[in-house]
């Protein structure tokens, strides 16, 4: 129990560093909207979603209606429904509802990524450990960005901002190496995602919307082309 929490803290460090950098740049935008450091810290602590928070600043700046604020938050965070649903299959039989709900509250793109990569059934304390350190850095990064603005050199910010993607790669590749259908799905995802970012009309959708639509289409096609075998399922569990 304790060691899983510590392991979560440790695996959370690279994520936390990347978060700090991304949140810092988010804080610079928040400041333009008139957010105080405390407002930035609180909103980052409770939302833990880069696109969602960016959306929050835009609705505040536009003095949008609260209905629009809810719609914006729902659309930018909709992919968490898919991730949360995928995680329900990762819990051990006896995991209490409270722990399941708390784990689902911890979900961000990266926390989901390392939780799904956890060997065997998910130990909730692992997710909690990672969530605590990353949320702290995410929230303080936002507050620092609001306070310190452009003090950090641009090349450092640029370098740190790819840390998150490095982690995504480290999660995807081992699975793709083991299962060539995952590899095929990953290659198709790269290609389609690249095409959709430049395609007329589709490229005008928000990144969040494109992510959801593509994820559903590619995963559904993969599930039809190559449904998992009972045996294969055992080895990734």
């Amino acid at each position: 129990m304790h060691s899983n929490f510590t392991k979560g803290l440790r695996d959370g460090i690279p994520i936390a560093l990347g978060y700090y950098a991304v949140a810092f740049s988010l804080g610079i935008i928040a400041k333009r909207t008139g957010f105080s450091a405390i407002e930035g810290f609180v909103s980052s602590t409770f939302m833990r979603a880069s696109a969602g928070e960016y959306g929050l600043y835009t609705v505040v700046a536009a003095s949008a209606t609260f209905v629009e604020a809810v719609a914006m938050s729902a659309v930018t965070n909709l992919r968490y429904i898919l991730m949360s649903a995928a995680l329900t299959q990762k819990f051990a039989e006896g995991t209490s509802l409270l722990k399941r709900l708390l784990v689902s509250l911890c979900i961000t793109d990266e926390i989901f990524g390392i939780s799904i990569a956890f060997p065997g059934r998910l130990a909730p304390s692992y997710t909690f450990g990672a969530a605590i350190i990353t949320t702290l850095c995410w929230a303080s990064g936002t507050a620092s960005g609001i306070i310190a603005g452009g003090a950090l050199p641009a090349n450092i910010v640029a370098a740190l901002s790819v840390a998150l993607y490095g982690m995504f790669i480290a999660i995807i590749i081992p699975a793709a190496k083991k299962d060539r259908y995952v590899l095929a799905a990953v290659i198709v995802s790269f290609v389609l995602s690249g095409l959709c970012s430049i395609a007329p009309y589709i490229s005008e959708w928000s990144v969040g919307t494109r992510t959801i639509v593509l994820t559903i289409i590619v995963s559904a096609v993969a599930a039809i082309v190559k449904p998992i075998e009972e045996k294969e399922e055992d080895c990734h569990e």
């Binding site: 995928a86 989901f112 993607y165 995504f168 995802s189 593509l214 994820t215 995963s219 998992i228």
Partner: peptide
Amino acid sequence: SFLYYIPYVTLAIMT
């Protein structure tokens, strides 16, 4: 099967 592919597909798309 759908949920098995989701993590890798969505992370690839986001990368």
